[in-house]
Amino acid sequence: MKDTDMTITPEYSARLSRRAFLGALAAGAGLIGVPFSLRAASGASGPAIAFDGDALILADGTLSRSDEAGGWIELSGPAAGGILSLATHPGRPGRIAAGLTTGGVALSEDGGHAWEARSQGLSDAPVEAVTIAAAETDTLYAAMRGDGLWKSEDTGRSWALAMDRPWLADAERDLTALASVDLATGMGGIWIYAGTELGLTRVPDCFCRWQDVQPGDAMDALVSGKPAPMEAPLPAGETINALVSAASLPTRLYAALPSGIWMSEDAGVVWSQKSNTHALAVAVHPTNADHVVAITGGGLIESRDGGANWTALARA
């Protein structure tokens, strides 16, 4: 367990048993312990990026924040470990959730200057991805390496398992990216989109089951159980390193893949390639869906026109 409470409850004991069982299966199949992309080693940070208002929060070995003059301020980062993933919310400027390489989640309420551990009930497995619910800023989701999707409704003070990992190509697959997407087609308006090493999946906020992205609403997809043919999906079999929904235009999604940066205008049904540079992380401005910044193998790049044109973003 994390933090200071070491009481072993029946619920926690059940989670331990479940993890031990899944861990044994995955270890036998060689699925656990292999990083899915250029992920940070324990104690290092990134690659991860997020907008906090107009400022950028960047984890790429160290943690830093852009300032109004175009420079960068180095931040101390969480004491509990390096940052593997970042999430912010336009409804709560200054609030930053960080998934840690050493396991657990840290939360900042002042733009990344001070951090508090919010990991009670989570394992020590690295948090591959974290997101803040689109319609509820106190609700956090975390994707645990070797485990499933976890949910907190009190800004990380307590956590509960929301979903097991998706079953894809005859095996459970870790989640490599998360985005809470505010769509009318979801149950309660919310979908949780997730990247995996094999592509894109999603679950409505009923947490009924993982399903392929397809046109129509959540109930139609759940009843049919058969995905509609996709006209232009993301490349099959590629790891999704990062995924983000534009808060000002929720149907606009950006994804960072080894093949580049991809964009969808219709909530993930049809995708178009916006860059062919290996992309490790991506962020979109909270009020401008065309303003995108990405971490690539060559550094930071920025687009002000929805990915049609890109320029290098200097770190002065």
Rank of each mutant, 00 (worst) to 15 (best):
L200Y: 02
R65Y: 05
A246S: 09
A142M: 13
D60C: 12
A312Q: 05
I132F: 00
A134T: 05
T277R: 12
A312I: 09
E302Y: 07
M263T: 09
I301W: 04
L107N: 02
F51L: 10
T101L: 14
F36G: 14
D5F: 12
L222D: 00
I190H: 01
L38V: 07
D217P: 04
D52P: 04
G103Y: 03
G237D: 12
K226Q: 10
P215Y: 00
D5W: 03
R315N: 02
I261Y: 00
Q120D: 11
L86H: 00
D205T: 14
A14H: 02
A114G: 05
E153M: 12
D52V: 11
S275H: 07
V292D: 05
D52T: 08
Y12L: 15
E128Y: 13
A98F: 04
D205Q: 08
G28H: 11
G299K: 01
A312D: 12
Y193I: 15
I73L: 11
S66Q: 05
M263I: 13
A48I: 09
Q120M: 11
E68L: 11
S245A: 15
V181H: 09
S259C: 08
A218C: 15
D147R: 12
A256G: 11
A125T: 07
P126C: 13
G53K: 01
E128T: 14
A160T: 12
P35D: 15
I83R: 09
G99Q: 09
G112D: 03
L198P: 00
S224T: 04
H278S: 09
T201V: 15
A246V: 06
V244Q: 10
R202C: 12
A97Y: 03
A55K: 03
A247E: 02
F207R: 07
L168F: 02
D67A: 04
L178S: 12
P10G: 10
P233G: 08
G237L: 15
E11N: 09
V244H: 03
Y141I: 13
A29E: 06
A48R: 01
G195I: 15
L84H: 08
T176K: 11
A135G: 06
A20I: 10
I96R: 04
N276A: 15
L58N: 00
L107T: 02
I8G: 00
R15F: 05
Y193Q: 11
K151N: 07
A314H: 02
V105P: 07
V292A: 08
E68K: 12
G216D: 14
M144T: 13
A44F: 03
A50M: 03
A129P: 08
G81W: 06
Y254S: 10
A135D: 15
A281Y: 04
T296M: 11
A44W: 00
A134M: 05
V130R: 07
N276Y: 08
H291P: 06
Y12P: 00
H291K: 10
A80I: 12
A55V: 02
W167P: 01
E68Y: 01
L31Y: 04
P166S: 10
W271H: 06
G82T: 06
L84K: 11
H291A: 15
L25S: 03
G298M: 12
N241W: 10
A194M: 13
L234M: 02
P10F: 08
D54E: 13
M6F: 11
L253G: 06
G111D: 01
W310I: 11
L122W: 01
G43Q: 01
W72S: 06
G81T: 07
T7Q: 03
H285N: 06
D154E: 01
L122I: 11
P204M: 04
E109A: 14
C208A: 05
T277C: 02
S45A: 09
